[in-house]
Design a protein around this nucleic acid. Structure first.
Lengths: 338, 338
DNA sequence: TTGTACGCGTTATCAC
DNA sequence: GTGATAACGCGTACAA
């Protein structure tokens, strides 16, 4: 593909390349008439300044990298949507990376981004990471980074999160109020900060209502549908909980499937509540009580924060965190009678 | 952010930049020992060749642009997932653009991409486009383009689609076999090729079973949840269909909501079938009978096709189309008795 | 207001 | 096998 470049455009106008270049920047002194003449011709010839040359020259890419654990997930696709909107308004592009919850990929993406490909990173961390020091390289090189939702506690950088502790306290409390006393807590990775925080809310709610904690009710699940199905069926038949609180959307679905298989009636035999960004939660059988995070808003806030970091780093406290509220929507999966 | 460049790396090794550069390409003559020495040092200093300089020099970006109507949509996020996987294996990045079904954005994205930002485009077209000639500019400039799922019939370029005609014929047939005689067909944009093809399957199925066509049963919906709700409630109460066939996932959901509001029982009063990539269709109330497109596979195939176009354009027939099969999964929303 | 000349970081070509 | 150098397309300091 041969695209017209600034030289050819200049030649066709009998101008120098610098004059043409100036027509595309706002700050430069240039005769209004010539500028218009240039822009007109540019449009005619469909000239677009080469991004790579500009980036090289200006030492920035006007691109932000978005790293998420997975794409086929309501929360992340909504968040990306929010990020994309802000980025587009700012004239930035977004580059998408999916770690598929693999730590190695996360590290490799981050390292790779040292090549100037992006001006900043918005990331929700993978579930399996243990050693986060590789991120400190970022700090040294000062490539702006904003976390959202899933964060590493030990890395100091701005973050946008929801009040997971409060939300899960409310969720557990709601189950208790609906009469549950044996509430299972389903988590995918206990060590991930988000798993820990959400679990603490659950624990504290139990304590507040004097419900004894039983560690057999805390179930560590996986990312595999098949394994989860086995784990859950096993748990449901042996531990016999009367409520299930899932820290991740996927586990609520898994619970439904397991209950279907075992002929356990929700909410009569078992009440279910879960973190979820599913827009059609009301259409489930039974409709699912959810703690819904403002996913799009989270994306928007994360992007705004990153741009602040890019445009005026001195105004941003690296310790800052934006905390948004999730919403507890009560539906039939936790109703008293179906 | 200051990243180390090839010059500094060369200097720290007492080598020339050309030698260092050679260490990173496979084809060049270079002493094995020096190569290793260079790579070791590069790793130590965390050197990454600057993408923009390489791109400028090599006149390609190793990036593909993905343009979709929307991101918060199961079909598209799964497809993007597939594209991302292939791209990553090839060492490419993907740039995401969401048109939000606005024709202007689509045009602007495409024009923008003339600046060398991407080596190729994978696109599912927006719903509102009328004039596609702007795409011919692409043809002239030979920026490789692959369509998937939603295509423009009048633009000649490779495409990956599903057999929409057959699928919707089967879907309509299934409804008929289940006893429906007044089947509504819900579409978002009748003029879009995908809307037309799917509708033809519906029409032909009606004809085959001698069911008269009633144009009051073909409902043009919108992208707005609120408007659709009004349109559908109105339709359901006035036209009183006994079956609904939705050409788009979202309209199946809208139908469910409308039925809930009007106390219409699915499937007793009304049977529903729809195109949908929802993984939890079995969990809906009632579980939704779907025509499910192999979304991830479509993405993978589209990406493979684009890479073929990039790597060996002469081997690709621009008229080629890959047709994948969708699956009709019968569930309770079309059952005889609930 | 416009033009000239240089450099951004890389790689390919040509010497040695 | 390695080094010097030009060029990719653009933006800006400086000169005119």
């Amino acid at each position: 593909m041969h695209n017209i470049n600034i030289k050819e455009l200049a030649k066709s106008l009998n101008l120098s390349t610098s004059t043409v270049s100036r027509a595309f920047r706002d700050n430069s002194d240039i005769n209004k008439a010539t500028k218009e003449r240039i822009l007109a011709k540019a449009k005619e010839l469909n000239y677009q300044p080469n991004h790579y040359a500009s980036n090289l020259r200006e030492q920035r890419s006007r691109t932000i990298a978005v790293i998420v654990p997975e794409l086929a997930n309501n929360f992340f696709s909504q968040a990306i949507h929010g990020i994309e909107r802000v980025a587009r308004e700012k004239g930035y592009h977004i580059l998408i990376f999916a770690t598929e919850d693999e730590y190695e990929k996360e590290v490799s993406f981050i390292r790779h981004l040292h090549n100037g490909r992006a001006d900043g990173i918005i990331m929700s961390v993978s579930g399996e990471a243990n050693d986060h020091t590789y991120l400190d390289e970022l700090a040294e090189k000062r490539l702006p980074l904003v976390f959202f939702d899933r964060v590493y506690e030990d890395i100091i950088t701005p973050r946008v999160i929801t009040n997971d502790y409060n939300s899960s306290f409310s969720a557990a409390k709601h189950l208790i109020k609906q009469g549950c006393t044996r509430i299972a807590y389903l988590v995918i990775n206990k060590n991930l900060s988000i798993g820990k925080t959400r679990m603490q809310g659950y624990l504290d709610a139990l304590e507040e209502f004097n419900i004894p904690y039983d560690d057999k009710l805390v179930i560590d699940c996986t990312n595999s549908y098949r394994k989860n199905n086995t784990i859950l069926k096993n748990m449901l038949s042996k531990v016999k909980p009367d409520g299930v609180f899932t820290s991740v959307e996927r586990l609520a679905f898994a619970t439904y499937y397991a209950c279907y298989d075992l002929n356990i009636s929700i909410p009569n035999d078992l009440k279910v509540i879960g973190f979820s960004s599913l827009e059609i939660a009301p259409l489930l059988n039974p409709s699912l009580t959810t703690i819904t995070q403002p996913a799009t808003k989270i994306g928007i806030e994360a992007a705004l924060l990153l741009f602040k970091l890019l445009e005026a780093p001195e105004t941003v406290d690296l310790n800052c965190q934006i905390v948004l509220d999730s919403t507890l929507v009560k539906r039939n999966s936790t109703a008293l009678k179906s």
